[in-house]
Design a protein around this nucleic acid. Structure first.
Lengths: 193, 193
DNA sequence: CGAAAATTTGACATGACTCAACTGGAGTGG
DNA sequence: CCACTCCAGTTGAGTCATGTCAAATTTTCG
């Protein structure tokens, strides 16, 4: 069962007791997402927390010139949600799309709030999860404001070594904030070292 | 009393009951920080959560060339902590320094954990706080990977209009990831529009 | 297999940095 | 309260990093 992967995920924090696990069984539903299909499209309200069981998603924004900018890759055992739209219940500015065929578990907005209220362990576990995501995001910011494109690329390969070989260079370039052409130049330069 | 500002801060989330307020009275201590003095220096373990009552701090990293890169400004009613060092209890890579004479409230590591365990409202409130900080950090990342220095500057002035007039351009340039010289060029170009 | 997407390449353009010099204002000590 | 120092801000010349555009080639996957 896919929900087992979610329960194991929480074992990394404060493991769930049987009542909490039972709540997950009731409140999460499974979904398969085909490659290139969307979990969320710009203009929709983000109504779910989405947990990726297998595969990989990306979250991205499209600028006024039509260019895509990857905010996040979400592989198995990670969460994909536009928190801003989720809580404000306003239309999202973002897309969430499958880069690989993916299996996900989703829980609706009202049921997330129910879990938070009824079982405070979810408040605890998600506090820790969001602290970690915040740290990760700050580290990325530091890279962005202090390092060259080449250094950011090297750092990305090291930090996400198990993920980077599943991603196309187009996707990596978009995440790093550079053009695919320039990433190609960087890679060529490194090949001769 | 300075601690009142902290209690009011929590009113933005789930307001505290009297037992929780009493715990704050016991566990937080006041401190004055002079301009240019440090709340945290690289190499120290970050042992406190720091809440800014008045003034303004900055959190920054120093790269291998000795250049400073501002990760965050922390004005009144905000939290300054190197979460990574705080939880890992490893030496911090960061500095936290007062840009203005500042008053802060601090709580020690063990007492933070005590609050989380004893009163789960703190888990709840800090979950919400970190969710918001994560959203803010992702928005900054989007700016960094998708916008020119000029657009990032304009966006910064709009987003932090009440803070930006208290900051020197050197500090703003460091936050945006550009040189002060180039920020000066941007400002000159805008002056003639 | 065939279409669509990814990758590479090169010529050229531009955004942003470096370095050095100069100016003016704010903080500090006598 | 003045003099001094130091730091913020500006300017310009030259350079480097990265982007744009177009085209050719290779890979992927449906």
């Amino acid at each position: 069962m896919q929900i087992e992967k979610l329960k194991e995920h929480f074992d990394n924090y404060f493991p769930l007791d049987s009542a909490e696990q039972e709540a997950l069984n009731k409140l999460f539903s499974e979904k398969n997402i085909k490659r290139r299909h969307f979990v969320l499209e710009q203009g929709e309200v983000c109504k779910h927390f989405t947990f990726v069981v297998s595969g990989c998603l990306r979250m991205y924004a499209v600028d006024t010139h039509g260019k895509e900018h990857n905010l996040q890759f979400i592989p198995e055992n990670d969460w994909a949600t536009d928190l801003s739209s989720f809580y404000s219940e306003q239309p999202s500015q973002l897309f969430i799309q499958a880069l690989e065929p993916s299996r996900v578990l989703q829980i609706r907005h009202d049921n997330v709030l129910y879990l938070y209220t009824k079982y405070h362990k979810f408040d605890h576990n998600f506090r820790v999860i969001f602290e970690q995501k915040y740290i990760e995001s700050q580290n990325r910011t530091l890279q962005n404001i202090s390092s060259s494109a080449e250094d950011r690329y090297q750092h990305f390969l090291r930090q996400y070594s198990n993920l980077s070989n599943r991603l196309s260079n187009v996707q990596i370039a978009s995440y790093l904030g550079i053009t695919p052409e320039f990433l190609s130049v960087i890679r060529r330069a490194n090949a001769y070292k």
